[in-house]
Design a binder for these strands. Structure first.
Length: 174
DNA sequence: CCCTGATTCGC
DNA sequence: GCGAATCAGG
């Protein structure tokens, strides 16, 4: 999306009305709040009033520049792809753990709406357009309390009594 | 954690 | 000119 004359007008208007950069970005669509802020500065209309922020920062020095490489591989992602890959046997375990799980109740998050504080339990086939995440409030970890139970099944002796399992589930559930 | 604007600089 | 990454702060 480019800064057409209309879009700039909308930007000016909303900015003058006191909307935040992210609000303006959302309304315009196709731009991030960074883009909006950048444009605001280029238009020379930064700092409307003083939102109670004296902010005198010593001039920022040259950015250390850990930018992503031209090949598109982020430095952090570059190594240890092996650790991310799921082995076949683990897949089977995950799939079986998944069986009782996909709670279809209420809200599921998409990759776009999933927040850090939301349960990241996958629901459905990742290849499916309808693939989603559980999305309920996560409970200390990446999952909601319900999914945490099945996600973090410990290794245990097969011939233990069910009582032990229930005690364990109660303990990790808080 | 969520958010805000400000700045730098590779593109 | 553009905007992601980063910073500094609420």
């Amino acid at each position: 999306m480019s800064w057409t004359e209309e879009r700039v007008e909308v930007l000016k208007k909303l900015w003058a009305e006191g909307h935040s950069a992210s609000q303006i970005a959302k309304q315009l669509g196709g731009v991030t709040r960074n883009a909006v802020i950048g444009k605001v500065h280029r238009l020379g209309l930064s700092g409307r009033a003083t939102p109670s922020r004296p902010v005198k920062r010593p001039p920022r020095l040259a950015r250390p520049k850990p930018r992503i490489r031209p090949d598109g591989v982020s430095p952090a992602t570059e190594t240890n792809l092996d650790e991310t890959r799921i082995r076949r046997s683990d897949q089977d375990a995950i799939v079986s753990a998944l069986q009782p799980a996909p709670v279809a109740d209420g809200e599921a998050a998409t990759i776009l709406t999933l927040r850090d504080s939301m349960c990241k339990w996958p629901i459905g086939d990742p290849a499916d357009p309808k693939f989603a995440f559980c999305g309920r409030k996560s409970d200390c970890g990446p999952y909601c309390s319900e999914h945490a139970k099945v996600a973090f099944q410990p290794q245990r002796k097969r011939d233990r009594k069910r009582n032990d399992d229930e005690a364990y589930a109660r303990r990790i559930a808080g």
